[in-house]
Nucleic acid binder design. Structure first.
Length: 145
DNA sequence: CGACTGACGGCCT
DNA sequence: AAGGCCGCCAGTC
């Protein structure tokens, strides 16, 4: 399998995983990386989202991939080169009912204990796994980090 | 075609 | 507790 194919598969896996994030919840780049089996490449996850097309006709675009539900491990919306983008992400999250706090430096943060979504594996996959692991830390857990 | 960059994260000072 | 360094690798210049 050529690297380019692996890269393509990676993109698809990331988009698939991001789609599993429930509305009103958020997760991290690192977690998505783990879910797709490449925990050492959270950075590439960001590249995938950045690469999302705005064209609705494209297989993966801003409309069918809830990119806004992915933030960094610090619980902050990653400040990229264009500040408006991060703010736009915050707006998209608030539209889903996610509370976003703004720091004095303009930092946009989300409380994982309330909105965090960190399953061990993708719900779609868990479906086929007969060795069902207990899943019930949707909320309330509070032992996030 | 080579070098730099970056929607991150974890480990090491 | 805070900050710096390295790994990773597709895109972009």
């Amino acid at each position: 399998m050529a690297r380019s194919d692996e890269a393509a598969a990676f993109f698809l896996a990331v988009y698939s995983a991001v789609r599993e994030i429930p509305p009103g919840k958020v997760t991290t780049y690192g977690h998505i990386a783990k879910l797709v089996g490449t925990p050492q490449r959270p950075r590439q996850v960001g590249v995938c989202l950045k690469h999302l097309s705005q064209d609705p006709d494209s297989r993966h675009n801003h409309n069918n991939v809830p990119w806004q539900r992915v933030i960094n491990s610090k619980g902050l919306i990653s400040p990229r080169s264009q500040p408006s983008g991060a703010r736009n992400q915050a707006a998209a999250l608030e539209a889903e009912g996610v509370e976003v706090s703004t720091g004095s430096l303009g930092e946009l943060s989300v409380d994982f204990s309330q909105y965090g979504w960190f399953p061990r594996s993708l719900p779609s996959e868990a479906d086929e796994d007969d060795e069902e692991v207990d899943d019930e830390e949707d909320e309330e857990d509070g032992s996030e980090q």
